[in-house]
Design a protein around this nucleic acid. Structure first.
Lengths: 338, 338
DNA sequence: TCTGGCACTCGCGTACGAAGAGTGCCAGGC
DNA sequence: GCCTGGCACTCTTCGTACGCGAGTGCCAGA
């Protein structure tokens, strides 16, 4: 077990390294933080921390830098979440309040996060799986061609064309529309399949084919739209990554282009609370020198999607976590209001 | 005026420099291209080309590299557009054929372009201004609440809620729907305003308010949606930019995040044919060391949007132009089919 | 257990010289 | 008149050497 002072030394190393981007030595530590002990003592502590794998030295006779394990300890035990200042909070709220629709909310959130954290921001669109249906509309474009429109509680609108196996009368259409809405309006997506299962039975034989087609299109929409989209921003902040550029930045850019990777990344994060994945804790190899801070957000108490930032492992964790949490909270509010 | 041979020398310089990324000297030129003259002669030609501002040397006693002006001449007079090979064409078509909706078409196009050119691809969503209306649908969600759905010939669907000043009966709704479609279906967006202008007059006084509201919502949709969206991809290719990394790449990433800049960039390009903007020809400062190859594409003969790539001025112009043209053509076909 | 001292190790910046690539220019040849 | 070979000159690049500074590890003493 590490003594209290050693933990303080580790904390000081992380803070200094994050600030200066340079390996930090024993002397500098005692000068910048009043630890109450001499450099020599700190050196001993550092040697111990190195033995435990929390810090490492890039070369002999250079200062120490934290390892992934060191950052992990820092995040878990040594650092809190730095709350946003009131002015920052107001700025966040003002900025998000101007949004006109869902796309805009997401776009603004991305910009905001990128700006606040000076890192790459990733925002998932509110997922449909946990959303509820606000309304389903059906309209006939031609005798055997319908349009299905799905409106979700997050304000998202999805539409599909449906080619019917047989002509479908206006009265049948009105009937189906009414029955469909009475069953699914206000219900969660996940519940829809079982709720509409027996719906064809309520119709005349000649209409059943069409009803089934409509229903399967609806279910498809739910599933397909579950292939979540996301938006990223702040990639220019990648240039602040490190000195050894192309090597570090390239795989990150590649990862950012692979939506699948990102979605997995966010998906892996725990459902509640904030998740921080540091360096090699990220499954995707290209992100081994980055940390990902993510959190769920949603309109109600429940998270319907995630957002987060990707930055160098050498990042200001308390500040980043504070910004991520605050943004997630306000986005949730905005979604709840609209 | 430059002699034929000097043009050949310039062409050779551009080709070699694009290939090697290194300043090219007189000796190497005579070895790699059989110009039929000695290095000394080439040196004279190079001196002349430098006087004219087509090439420059980074330092005294280094080889020459083309200037923006040199690339311009190369593109205008010396290089054609390199057509895609049949296998490449097939690959393009196959890749795009798999698309399921407009978003998917755009997403696939971006990936494809980025992959083919190994540069950053930018694809604008098909614009609505030049599209035509396929269908307008109206449906009532509540006595005084309508939903307006606009379907375009490019397969895009936009919807808006309309709060009516007064309740609007089903028969009036059907009437409006029919009249609206008979007037605007198949017509171009730009023509819609004048086509619906006098529509309220055909209705009873009590319904006119609602009709006007619907119409203005429709017109708003047309205008608003003209705020075009775009998608970018292949940013990882930026790492192949040059050796002097952060300085070059940062402003480009920033530019790519500014949709406004990109839209302007594409917008400035001529309406017909391919446009190549080289280095300082780009108005936006951050893109002064990049070239932008863009072209319009559309479902019919007419361009409804633009797409292109952003890469270093030192790019393979014939190949890039070939890829951009081919992709634009196939995307046009796909849009026309759907 | 902490502290001061000391020798040791490297990385970094600078300086210097040799090598190599490329140029410009000039005189001579077709 | 144009092309060519030759030659001197300029710069960049690379390897080596060297001194400086920062930082460490260890040890003896408080």
């Amino acid at each position: 077990m590490l003594s209290e002072r050693r933990l303080q030394v580790l904390r000081a190393i992380v803070q200094d390294y994050v600030g200066t981007e340079e390996p930090v030595g024993s002397k500098a530590l005692t000068e910048r933080h009043n630890l109450g002990v001499s450099p020599a003592t700190v050196r001993n502590d550092m040697a111990a921390l190195e033995d435990e794998g929390f810090i490492a030295q890039p070369h002999t006779s250079a200062g120490r830098i934290p390892t992934d394990k060191g950052y992990r300890l820092f995040v878990d035990k040594l650092a809190g979440v730095k709350p946003m200042s009131p002015p920052e909070r107001r700025a966040i709220q003002n900025f998000l309040d101007g949004a006109v629709d869902l796309d805009d909310v997401v776009a603004r959130t991305v910009r905001l996060l990128a700006q606040l954290t000076r890192q790459v921001a990733v925002v998932q669109y509110p997922s449909l799986t946990r959303s509820t249906v606000r309304h389903v509309e059906l309209l006939s474009l031609a005798p055997a061609r319908l349009m299905l429109v799905l409106i979700t509680d997050t304000g998202r609108v999805e539409q599909r064309m449906v080619d019917c196996p047989a002509p479908f009368g206006e009265s049948s259409l009105a009937d189906l529309r009414a029955r469909l809405n009475s069953r699914v309006a206000g219900r969660r997506f996940a519940d829809v399949p079982s709720l509409v299962e027996d719906l064809p039975e309520a119709f005349e034989a000649e209409d059943r084919g069409t009803v089934s087609t409509v229903l399967s299109t609806l279910l498809e929409t739910l599933v397909e739209e579950n292939e979540e989209r996301l938006m990223i921003g702040g990639t220019a902040n990648l240039t602040r990554f490190g000195h050894d550029f192309p090597l570090t930045i390239r795989p990150v850019l590649e990862a950012l282009e692979e939506q699948v990777v990102l979605l997995k990344l966010l998906g892996e994060a725990g459902d509640s609370g904030m998740t921080v994945r540091i360096g090699h804790e990220n499954a995707y190899e290209g992100l081994n020198s980055t940390s990902v801070v993510s959190v769920g957000y949603g309109s109600g108490g429940e998270a319907v999607a995630k957002l987060g930032v990707v930055g160098p492992t050498r990042m200001d964790y308390p500040g980043t976590m504070g910004a991520v949490r605050a943004v997630a909270r306000y986005v949730g509010q905005i979604l709840a209001e609209s």
